[in-house]
Design a protein around this nucleic acid. Structure first.
Length: 721
DNA sequence: CAGCATTCCTAT
DNA sequence: TGAGATAGGAATGCTG
């Protein structure tokens, strides 16, 4: 069946599915004539920030709906077996997913939002989804330009390419890296670049070229600009000169097109936001107004980008772009100088990036900081031409500035705020290229630091976590790393781990090929000795779960994933996290590590009970031990047997409960779920995004290990009672 | 081991 | 038949 033709609005002779590299990276892989193809996955990737963009995970986070995942292998089996009930299950699986795709578009409000954006930009529906921000800016700009009889130039690709490089950079201060116990006030210039374009009349339609001597080069942006001397004579009292030496006429001569457009956009946004307050009861309308104001904000923010689109721009102008950035930079510099030199405020600027300033007030209270922050905001706003406005954002108390674009603190937004909010920028708690374990441990440690400053409490916490990891008493889900993979862009030698895993899976199943940009999960295991490359120590989580000879590389996770981010923070206050780890009681570490004598390539197969042993904790009391049952439990034989039996019952009961959950999620009739001996097939779902899946695996191992207690009893020492 | 390139993801 | 920008940190592996 040629599905593409079937879906198409016209019948084509060719049965070739049109593929192209752009579609592969940006859209929906294949094209259907007369239809808008929406790649729901790619769309959702831009909509929400997740560590995994599998269908099941998007369904869970967007629709709040748990849905099963069946491997291609399982589905193929169902199809081949010619059992009606299995075929039915197969078709229903796909039908459910097809429907859920529509539900996703519905819940995320994609159609409504796209339509609304199309209306505001004045472009068609599909262009909102597939075309870039230049198209939007131009669409709006054209509508203002036309009535004023402006003609937009159309430089050739060559002209755009030959444009000189950008010279001006935004100001990013190197922060004074430390722990700040006194309040730090954060202020932001509101829409700085749009405000500058409006305030200083920077525009294509107002520029008079660079300040130059007669005979100097007249190059301007992608072309030349040579204003006659006589004209300057006429305009000489109405010229604004930007910090990078470009002249613009002031508002009294001509109001710049960009400024007008941005003023319109920002004013409309204010209006929309205000009118939203009148419709608090109408949820639907409110939502639409919100979409509208966000769209307006977006377009204001990318207008600067339009002027500086040096790579792909249709009408860029470096000189204008430089004017905007350099003015922003000088505005920042003036602000910082003014604050630092103010006689009474007593604040010091400790960090700032592009349009924000962080002011530390040593020894001041939080409420004083609020008052001063508002005063500074007022003063600085007054010093700058409208509509440039320095806005009070928040107070961090306390906070840690780590590096440029990396900081974290307890955030207070209002003087009345009682419970501060944990806010982190750029550090591992907000990055998605590490593990959930790192995020959780770092976040918890930081919260403890902010709340109590009690190092011994943090040390206890970290010891507990490290011990858990070393003894393998952790949920695998927290140790999965998933980074974006772009197959086809890598050189042969040394693939990134994600790509490595993807290629390996494709050998088994060509349809395991990840879509361009998909996040491929992997875990790091012990393999090939301590000097192995990371590349050679990674496997897909499923492989670790199904192969009992593999073991999570606890040392890698602790030493490479968890300790470095912690150290970066705690080194600033003189705490040596790595030292803590090194001095952790030997018995605990050595015990766990003795199992990590790498299994090597010819991985010896060990059965489940051995695997359970390697998890290195006593199956009775769950303390760390190198034996299946620790010496102290061995001594108390009768008590231990009793515990064992009750634990066995416990585990079986847990297994039954989990089975119920999985069956209802998979909508399998209960009769199909047999007891544990029937093998792995009784729960066909293995969704790596589902917490229950991991619990099920763990419980299965528990049930199995505990079920052979009688063989252990055979080896039991002579009864002590 | 330093220095550099590649890769990923985030801040603005 | 498509393409807003740069700065920046960190991990990893290669090269000299």
């Amino acid at each position: 069946m040629n599905l593409v033709n079937e879906l198409s609005r016209i019948q084509q002779e060719s049965d070739i599915i049109a593929r192209d590299s752009w579609g592969y990276k940006k859209a929906s892989v294949f094209r259907v004539v007369g239809r808008h193809m929406i790649n729901v996955w790619r769309l959702m990737k831009g909509e929400m920030s997740l560590t995994s963009y599998t269908f099941e995970n998007i369904a869970y986070h967007l629709l709040r709906y748990r849905t099963p995942y069946y491997s291609n292998e399982t589905l193929t089996t169902w199809n081949k077996r010619c059992v009606p009930v299995l075929k039915h299950r197969l078709y229903r699986y796909y039908a459910d997913r097809a429907k859920m795709n529509l539900d996703m578009l519905d819940v995320a409000d994609i159609i409504k939002r796209t339509s609304e954006s199309a209306r505001i930009f004045g472009i068609d529906f599909y262009s909102v989804l597939v075309r870039g921000s230049q198209f939007r800016v131009e669409s709006i700009m054209f509508r203002i330009a036309k009535p004023e009889n402006y003609v937009l130039i159309t430089p050739s690709r060559k002209q755009v390419g030959e444009q000189r490089a950008i010279e001006c950079l935004p100001l990013t201060l190197e922060p004074n890296s430390q722990y700040y116990n006194s309040p730090v006030v954060v202020l932001d210039f509101q829409s700085l670049y749009p405000s500058i374009m409006i305030a200083y009349n920077y525009c294509y339609s107002t520029c008079l070229g660079r300040v130059r001597a007669p005979g100097d080069d007249t190059a301007f942006g992608v072309c030349k600009l040579d204003i006659q001397k006589e004209l300057f004579e006429t305009l000489k009292d109405n010229i604004i000169v930007s910090p990078n030496g470009v002249m613009y006429v002031d508002h009294s001569i001509r109001k710049g097109l960009l400024g007008k457009m941005l003023e319109d956009i920002l004013n409309t946004r204010v209006m929309v936001k205000r009118s939203a307050k009148d419709y608090v009861d109408d949820k639907g309308l409110l939502r639409m107004l919100d979409i509208r104001q966000l769209t307006l904000k977006l377009i204001a923010n990318v207008t600067y980008g339009y002027t500086s689109a040096s790579y792909s721009g249709r009408m860029p102008a470096v000189d204008i772009a430089d004017s905007i950035v350099q003015t922003g930079r000088e505005t920042m510099e003036r602000t910082i100088k003014f604050i630092n030199e103010h006689p009474t405020w007593g604040g010091k600027v400790v960090y700032g990036d592009t349009d924000s300033v962080f002011i530390h007030f040593p020894g001041k209270t939080r409420s004083e900081a609020f008052t001063l922050g508002n005063e500074i905001s007022e003063q600085i706003t007054k010093m700058n031409p409208a509509p440039i406005k320095l806005k009070f954002e928040k107070v961090y108390h306390p906070c840690v500035l780590l590096a440029k674009k990396r900081y974290v603190g307890s955030k207070y937004e209002f003087p009345t705020t009682l419970e501060p909010e944990f806010e982190a920028k750029g550090i591992e708690t907000v990055r998605r290229d590490g593990t959930a374990a790192t995020q959780k441990i770092l976040k918890t440690s930081l919260k403890m630091l902010f709340k109590t400053q009690d190092m011994s409490q943090i040390k206890d916490y970290l010891y507990r976590q490290w011990t858990k990891i070393l003894s393998n008493r952790v949920c695998l889900q927290d140790f999965i790393i998933a980074k974006g993979v772009r197959l086809g862009t890598y050189t042969e030698q040394s693939l990134p781990p994600g790509a490595q895993v993807a290629y390996k899976r494709m050998e088994q199943d060509p349809r395991a090929e990840p879509q361009y940009g998909h996040r491929v999960p992997y875990v790091v295991i012990y393999r090939d000795g301590p000097n192995a490359k990371l590349n050679e120590q990674v496997v897909h989580p499923e492989e670790l779960l199904s192969d009992n000879s593999l073991r999570l590389n606890a040392e890698y996770y602790i030493l490479k994933q968890i300790i470095p981010p912690l150290s970066r923070v705690f080194n600033l206050i003189g705490v040596d996290i790595k030292g803590w780890y090194d001095e952790m009681p030997r018995s605990q570490k050595a015990m766990a590590l003795s199992f990590s004598h790498y299994f090597g390539n010819e991985a010896r197969k060990i059965n489940r009970i051995d695997q359970y042993y390697t998890s290195s904790h006593c199956i009775i009391c769950r303390d760390i031990t190198s034996q299946p049952i620790c010496p102290s439990c061995l001594k108390q034989t009768s008590k231990s047997i009793f515990t064992l039996i009750s634990r066995q019952k416990e585990a079986q009961k847990k297994w039954n409960n989990i089975s119920l959950i999985c069956n209802s999620c998979s909508q399998l009739p209960p009769v199909l779920s047999n007891s544990i001996e029937s093998g792995d097939t009784e729960h066909p779902c293995n969704s790596l995004d589902c917490k229950v899946f991991y619990e099920r695996n763990r419980t299965k191992n528990d049930v199995y290990a505990l079920s052979i207690y009688d063989t252990l009893i055979d080896q039991w020492p002579v009864l002590d009672t």
